[in-house]
Design a protein around this nucleic acid. Structure first.
Length: 583
RNA sequence: GGCGGUGUAGCUCAGUGGUAGAGCACGCGGCUCAUAACCGCGGCGUCGCUGGUUCGAUCCCAGCCACCGCCA
């Protein structure tokens, strides 16, 4: 019975283009996981989309005099293009501004309300004088009442470190327009997190053994201090509150975090509708045998390990099986941090370099368990000395020799112990690489595949088929047959990590069909409008997490290099380019 | 300020209560089908800092520092 795997990928926020850190955190790891499971024959559903509500998008819209929808439309398109170019194989990548999403969010809100899990409370809050919208604490600044620092924030003074309330500040002002905020009473709904404390505790106890330490420890410490969490805001951009007396109001909306996490569910429902099997989402969401994996950066842990599980418990859906949170990727030693406005953007990177080398770097040197740094020097080195020199070279030398001397897969004669042992060693990778991927240890998994590639290189070196061709062509054929089968086997193992080049190896070996095919971009009509989604016909792709059948006599294609060797000038050029960009 | 994570060779990471390992990088020699690999040899680290426990700590404990994140 194939496993049912739900891959829920954090929703990128549509307020700007995404940089390498974003796709290193949620993108590449989730795609490796999903591609592996599809190869293995699991029933995979991988969903995500752009997160398009909330204050930052409103602020961006005000700043440039456009509407929040225009901002969201623009970045939904740009981010979607990035993800396609990177080869992220979502079953559905959609957005939070669709009618389907609104409907699902409102249904769940209403359900939680009806069950008594939402508490109404009145609080004193800051509002923008100009727009009447909620002004989050971090958007307020003023003079610190304790140390006199003139640029203290509404939540904390960065000078003396004391925690503050926005009402403490002397001469408070909005960081958006400089105007003093208005403080007034406002009524909101809060999600009753404490009501679920015991059930969370119980659930978490079953996760101690396999969650990453950053996730489990962080979550464990949150539980004793659970407080009701506001679920609505004073805004006019977001999902309306589906209750009588509230639904019509222009100044109250559901808080963006609540609608964003519900995207996993709404996207699954949308996917099922698009397949004309509207109930198929339940095969994952209402199935205790299905395993739900969530992929995100570490800033998102609390939402996935506490708040979202509470919503799931309250509404009655399956809880996460694993929460895979990455650390952070810095760029060039923080000299060019996102907070300073300069980062390496995905679309910019992919306009000059291929996606697989980037996927390779972000996996082998990415922030899996600790913060790591992207440098151009390291990227060039890893590309040249590891990707090109090891795996790229193995494919190239094997295919060049086989194609030149045989033009097809040569037949194997009697196998020596050495022949058998290299084949066995490489094929053992299906267990070792696969096992590591299942544990979300992608860095170790890729290193293991590289180690096996290296074993095959050593085999070729020892057997020297290029010399045997002149003295014993039959034996040369046997050696190349073994080498080609190693390449064919490794190609499958590399597919989750390096889909584009694995597909090329697949074709050069004379195979047909898609091991890793195109991702489809589609305009979906809904209620008279359309929105763009990413999807794909992955069920038609070649499957099998096992050694493929490579028949003697199969015609080989003229081999071409898989990866480009990068010159040292790349480093200088890219650094100069980064310097030239205004912060 | 509270909480969590991280801090081990140039880079990325393993690891163990008995004075540290891997891959890549670097130096030398051999070989050459390949965008050169492979083989052999070689250097490389006060395992963040300071104390404590211990016969002995990089690994246990305490405090501190740095970086990242969350919360307030």
């Amino acid at each position: 019975m194939p496993e049912r795997i739900l891959v829920n990928v954090a929703w990128p926020y549509a307020s700007g283009p995404r940089h390498l850190g974003h796709v290193a955190g949620f993108g590449v790891p989730s795609d490796i996981f999903a591609r592996y499971h599809r190869l293995k024959g699991s029933q995979v559903l991988m969903v995500s989309g752009t997160d398009e509500h909330g204050t930052p998008i409103l602020v961006a819209a005000d700043r440039e005099g456009s509407t929040p929808k225009e901002i969201a439309d623009r970045y939904n398109r740009i981010i979607g293009d990035d993800l396609v170019k990177l080869g992220l194989s979502y079953d559905l990548f959609t957005r939070t501004t669709t009618p389907n999403h609104y409907e699902v969010v409102q249904q769940v809100f209403k359900d939680l309300y009806d069950k008594g899990y939402l508490i109404k409370q009145t609080t004193l809050a800051a509002f923008s004088a100009a727009t009447g919208r909620t002004l989050p604490d971090r958007y307020i600044e003023g003079t610190c009442p304790i140390c006199g620092f003139p640029e203290a924030r509404g939540d904390q003074c960065d000078n003396c470190g004391n925690q503050l309330d926005p009402t403490d500040l002397i001469e408070p002002r909005s960081r958006i327009d400089g105007q003093p905020p208005v403080f007034k009473e406002t009524e909101h709904f809060f999600l009753d997190l404490p009501a679920f404390g015991a059930r969370l505790q119980e659930w978490l106890a079953t996760k101690e053994t396999y969650w990453r330490p950053n996730v489990i420890n962080f979550t464990r410490n949150l539980l004793p201090e659970l407080k009701p969490r506001p679920i609505t805001r004073d805004l006019d951009w977001g999902v309306p509150i589906p209750l009588p007396g509230w639904e019509e109001r222009d100044d109250k909306r559901i808080y963006v975090w609540f609608d964003a996490v519900l995207g996993y569910l709404s996207a699954s429902i949308e996917w099922a509708k698009l397949r004309s099997r509207p109930d198929d989402w339940k095969l994952w969401w209402q199935n205790p045998a299905a395993r739900h994996y969530y992929f995100m950066g570490k800033d998102n842990i609390v939402f996935h390990s506490v708040i979202w599980p509470v919503i799931l418990l309250g509404h009655g859906l399956e809880l996460p099986y694993d929460i895979v949170a990455s650390e952070f990727l810095t760029m060039e030693g923080r000299k060019f941090s996102a907070s300073r406005g300069v980062a390496i953007l995905v679309n910019d990177f992919l306009s000059r370099y291929d996606p697989d080398p980037l996927r390779y770097f972000l996996t082998i040197a990415g922030p899996e368990t600790q913060d790591t740094d992207f440098t151009w020097t390291e990227f060039v080195r890893r590309n040249n000395d590891e990707l090109v020199a090891n795996w790229g070279n193995l494919v190239n030398r094997t295919l060049v020799n086989a194609h030149r001397n045989f033009g097809e897969v040569p037949a194997a004669g009697d196998l020596t112990d050495r022949d058998r042992s290299v084949l066995d060693a490489v094929r053992a990778g299906y267990a070792s690489v696969g096992g590591l991927i299942e544990q979300a240890r992608f860095k170790a998994a890729l290193a293991e595949a590289m180690r096996l590639s290296s074993i095959a290189n050593t085999y070729l070196q020892d057997e020297q088929p290029w010399a045997l061709v002149k003295t014993d062509k039959a034996r040369a054929g046997t050696v190349l047959n073994i080498a080609l089968r190693c390449v064919d086997a490794l190609k499958v193992m590399f597919t989750p990590f390096l889909p584009f080049t694995s597909q090329r190896v697949h074709e050069m070996l004379g195979h047909e069909g898609f091991l890793a095919g195109p991702i489809e971009v589609r305009e979906v009509p809904e209620d008279g409008a359309t929105h763009r989604v990413l999807t794909g016909d992955y069920e038609s792709w070649v499957r099998g997490w096992q050694a493929p059948d490579l028949r003697p006599g199969q015609k080989l294609q003229e081999p071409k290099a898989l990866f480009k060797k990068l010159g040292d000038e790349v480093v200088e050029q890219e650094l100069a380019l980064m310097e030239s960009r205004p912060a």
